[in-house]
Design a protein around this nucleic acid. Structure first.
Lengths: 113, 113
DNA sequence: AAGCATTGCTAAATTTATCGAGCAAAGGTA
DNA sequence: TACCTTTGCTCGATAAATTTAGCAATGCTT
């Protein structure tokens, strides 16, 4: 199976923590932690990864990458990536669309007044 | 239950895509997509979120935040509303305005067809 | 040595993610 | 009108995440 289990175990041992101590700090059952460390878990939830990242003091993204989740781009990428307009629910807009929406937005805002 | 379903639905409709078209582009079953959009799914996998983010042209982090996953620290400000405000000429939008514009955008794009 | 707590682990149960099949409503087309 | 397709959705099945309970080995204390 997946083989990042030993990695998590190493992180825990580096802090000299016991499975049950980690359970207390994170709320994740020691049973599950054990399975995680012995390669019996494929994709732990991002929330649990985050908790472990905090406790073990490693970057959340590092753990996400370890378990095979897509990792968010770094800032440079985002900054360069096509239109900043590609945010929110509107998504990427062509110039014409943006102008038309701008017009409609004015209408919306003046509607009731 | 969680209620980000309508958000995904809005994203899909903004692109005038059908559930089965999204299925073809992402490999995610239309059955699951439907459940996702009708609030019957709690935590879709990061991988699926990533696929949808690509198709819908929204940041992966935004979707992660929507479904309640922790978002990497250095990305938080980008994942929230701010970018929408950075929407060139449109400026900052309220939720209601954004939804209404989304709806209008859909209309614009379907006008001819 | 006996008794007790700690530690890592597994087994079974529960919950959720995800898919395949198939159904009913809506649209078009002959 | 009858037929075929498309579309969103539900149902039932399978797999994986995560928990609770409990067990064996080790360690500590008397």
């Amino acid at each position: 199976m997946s083989d990042y289990g030993s990695y998590f175990k190493a992180l825990r041992e580096a802090k000299s923590l016991t499975l049950r101590e980690v359970e207390k700090q994170t709320g994740i059952s020691n049973a599950y932690l054990s399975q995680l460390e012995t390669g019996k878990v494929k994709q732990p939830s991002p929330l649990n990864l985050h908790k472990l990242a905090q406790l073990y003091e490693v970057p959340y993204e590092t753990l996400m990458e370890k378990v095979g989740y897509p990792v968010p781009q770094n800032m440079e990428h985002l900054a360069t990536r096509e239109p900043v307009a590609a945010h929110g629910r509107l998504g990427a807009l062509s110039d014409e669309e943006e102008l038309e929406l701008l017009d409609y937005l004015k209408f919306i805002r003046n509607r009731r007044r």
